[in-house]
């Protein structure tokens, strides 16, 4: 049976994600062990908290090596949400600067004011769709999603960018690199279009 594996690494909002996945009618497994990767048809990497602390926990539980070798050998779709999106990148300057999972080319930096924007960026903001993606199937361009973050993803590889959001200039709020997707907003807390986006991912 197909199963959505939700990676549990202590610092996260697991129940919000699993509630949404189950409401959409999919089976899920909240997993503490990389051994469960074998059974997964989709992988979700959630996350709230600080980058360096999250990486420490992922390392301790064996996820870093497992995800690295796994994503190279299999093409199972992975979705990183909020901090999860950031952890999939190369590195971050949050807390004690450190390397991420290095599965998506890019780095994480703090949002920088361009005209007195408040940081953290909290609330509903638009997703401007770039490079067509199945993730946004049937979701109108410029729909609002819920954001709550201070750091953002940067890349030199524009072709992986599938969504941007106007704040502190414009930052990358969604990417798709091979089988890996990342969104800076919280689809599980973004009402009907958020759930639709999750459903699009789970149906890939």
């Amino acid at each position: 049976m197909s199963q959505v594996l939700i990676i549990n690494y202590e610092l996260n909002n697991i129940n919000s994600i699993s509630n949404a996945v189950s409401r959409l009618g999919f089976n899920y497994n909240i997993s503490n062990s990389p051994f469960d990767l074998k059974k997964a048809s989709k992988i979700i990497l959630p996350g709230v908290g600080s980058f360096d602390i999250a990486m420490k926990v992922l390392k301790k539980n064996g996820w870093v090596d497992a995800l690295n070798s796994y994503s190279k050998n299999y093409e199972i779709p992975i979705l990183g949400i909020c901090l999860g999106m950031q952890l999939l990148a190369d590195n971050s300057e949050e807390g004690k600067p450190c390397d991420g999972l290095c599965l998506v080319p890019g780095k994480i930096k703090k949002l920088e004011q361009t005209k007195n924007e408040k940081i953290p960026h909290v609330g509903w903001n638009e997703l401007i769709q770039k490079n067509k993606s199945e993730l946004f199937n049937k979701i109108p361009n410029h729909s609002n999603f819920y954001f709550v973050h201070s750091y953002h993803f940067l890349t030199k590889n524009e072709s992986i960018v599938i969504g941007k959001t106007p704040y502190c200039g414009e930052f990358i709020s969604a990417y798709n690199h091979k089988n890996i997707f990342g969104v800076q907003f919280h689809p599980e807390k973004s009402g009907k279009y958020g759930l639709l986006m999750l459903k699009n991912f789970l149906r890939l």
Binding site: S16, G49, Y146, L195
Partner: peptide, 28 residues
């Protein structure tokens, strides 16, 4: 369990473990 919109929770929070538990449960 019944909530799919952003949620802030408070009341007597004075330990890191409380925060961790509430986030796990579904607070943002």
């Amino acid at each position: 369990k019944h909530n799919f919109i952003p949620l802030t929770v408070g009341g007597g929070i004075n330990k890191l473990a409380h925060i961790e538990e509430l986030l796990l449960i579904g607070a943002d």
